[in-house]
Design a protein around this nucleic acid. Sequence first.
DNA 1: ACTTAGGATAAGTAAAATTTATAGTGATTG
DNA 2: CAATCACTATAAATTTTACTTATCCTAAGT
Lengths: 303, 303
Amino acid sequence: MEFNQLESFISVVKHKSFSKAARELFLTQPSISNNIQNLEKELGAVLLDRKGKTIALTDSGKIFYRYALELINTREQAIHSIKDHLNKIEGKIELKASSIPEQYILPYIIKDFTKIYPKVTFSIIHKNSMDIIDDILIGKESFGIVGIKCEAKMLEYINFYQDELVLATPYEKEYPKTSSNILDINILFSENFIFRKEGSGTRLFIEERLSEKNISLEDLNIISIIDSNEMIKKMIELSLGVSFISKIAIKDQETLKIIKSYKIEGLDLTRDFYFVYNKNRTLSPLVETFKDFLLNWPGLDII
Amino acid sequence: MEFNQLESFISVVKHKSFSKAARELFLTQPSISNNIQNLEKELGAVLLDRKGKTIALTDSGKIFYRYALELINTREQAIHSIKDHLNKIEGKIELKASSIPEQYILPYIIKDFTKIYPKVTFSIIHKNSMDIIDDILIGKESFGIVGIKCEAKMLEYINFYQDELVLATPYEKEYPKTSSNILDINILFSENFIFRKEGSGTRLFIEERLSEKNISLEDLNIISIIDSNEMIKKMIELSLGVSFISKIAIKDQETLKIIKSYKIEGLDLTRDFYFVYNKNRTLSPLVETFKDFLLNWPGLDII
DNA sequence: ACTTAGGATAAGTAAAATTTATAGTGATTG
DNA sequence: CAATCACTATAAATTTTACTTATCCTAAGT
C-alpha cells in the first residue's frame, strides 16, 4: 500500500472514472488502473466495481475509502505541523562576520535558513577575523564567523564553506601560463599588489602561505592597503594592480570578463570558513539551531 | 513521504540506531540513512540529531513521530478492517455444475474464493448443462455452471474459463500427423469412439462442431456411451477406444504419458465455460459475490 | 452493425529504492 | 594519544517499481 495508490483510489472514487482521475493526478489512465489493481491485489479484495458505464464502490471499497482519506489527510497534517513548528521559531541572530563571508557567503546561507525558519531575522556586524576571535576569547562574544583558524582549548570550529584564494588581475593582462590558468610563482615579484589591512583573515592567510615559500610581503611591490574587497576589485578592474582575493568574491566579474583569476604554481590557497564558538558557554537555542543548520548546509553550488 | 520512510524513521527512533533499524526492517544501513534523509529533505526539517553516540529526536522529530506512528497504525487498521469484513461474509453456495467444471475447474475456483472469503462453504450438485439451463428457464434454479451457451432473453452468461476439446487416445497409438499434434479429420472414421450421454455439454458441443463439417455422430463408430469422464479416461488408457474430451480433464494423464491428445485439422474445438443466471431474478448477495469473483478470476494457469 | 469512450493489457522506459563497497567521525581502550 | 571500534554518510551499481506509449477489448449510444 503506497500513498500514490491511495491518491489514485480516492480520485477514482471522487470522479467515478479512471481517466478523469488520471487527468487530475497528472498521470496516464493505465497508471491509475495499475495502482488500483495493485491495491486490490494487496488487500485481497475488489474495491471498485467497474462494469461499463459507471464505477461503484464495493462494500470493501467503502470500508477502505474512509481509511484512504484518513491516511492522506494525516499525511497533509503531518507536513503542515512540521512547517508550522518551524514557523514558530523566531528571533534575531546577531552575526559577527569577516568581510568575505559577510558579503559573499552569508547572504546565501541566510536565504536558505529563512526558507526553513521564516520568522528568524539577522543582523550582521562586520569585524575582522582576528578581532572576532579575540572577542570570543575575552568573553565579549560567544560565537562568530571567520576565515582563519586559531586553535585554542576554548574554541570550537565548524567548517561550513571552502573557498580558494586566487590572484585576481585585469582581464586584458596576459601572462606566460604554466597551464590553462596557473602562473609561475616568480610572476609575483613583478606585480603591483593591493592588500587588505593587517588583521584581515585573507591577509593573514596569504602571509602564512607565502612565508612557507620564504616570501615575505616586504618582497612584494605593495601599492595600496585597502580594507574593502569591492574597492580592491574596482582598482583591479581599472588596472591599478593585482590582488589575492577569494574566488567567490570575483565570481560575477569573472563571468562578466572584467577580471581574470590565476592559481600560483605550488601554492595551495584553499581556504576554509568557520562558525567559531566558545564551547564552554551555552549558545542560545536559536544560535544552536543556526549552528546545526550550518553543519549540514549543502553549500552554494546550486545557485 | 512514503510508508517505508515512515517505517525506517519509527524503527530508528525505537532503537536509537540506524543499523539496528536496518536489521529490524531487513534492509541495509545505507537504505535507512537514505530514507531518513529523503524524509528530512521533503519536510525541510532535521528529525534526528545523530552526533556520535546517541541518536535523539529533534523538536520537529518529536512532532513528526506521532504522525508517523498514526499513519503506520492506520494502514494496519485498514488492512485488518478489509480482511475482517471479508471474513464476516459467510454462508453456503449451492452450485449446480456440469461434469467438466465440477471435477476439474471448480475445485481451483473454490480454493481461490475461500482464500478471500474463508467463512463461505460450497455444495456442488452434478447436473448436465442442458438440465441446468432448463431448470433456470422454468424458474427452478436461478443460476448454474455450464459448458454450453443456449441464448435466451432471460439468460446472462459469464465466461470464466476457456478450454479446448481434444481427441484423447492411448499413449502408444501412432497417427500420421499433419503437424506436431494435428490429425486429419478423416482419421475420425476409422476410430472406435466413446461418447458421453445426450444432454452432456461436451457431447452437444462436439456434435455441433462436427455437423458444421457435415459429419453426424451416426457416421462415427461409437462403441460406448458413458457418462463419466473418469471412466472414459480409464477406457482410453486401456486402449478400448478414443474420445473427445476437455484438455483440462486429461492434464495429469498427459504429463504421466498415459494419454495423448490431438487437435483435428480444421476443427476449432475451443470451448467456453459459463456462470449462467436468470437476469430477471436477483441473486443472493453471496452468489452475487461469487459471480463478481468469477468475473475477475485469473484462471488456473498458476497452479 | 458502427462508432465512441473508458478500462485493461503489454512492452518499453524512466525513476526509485536498495545494495555493495568505502570513507569519515566520534567514542573507547591500551 | 594513537589505534581500534561502532556507527553513519557517501558513491556507484543494481534491482525494483512506477509510469508511459501503443494497442486491444468491451459496453453503451447512434
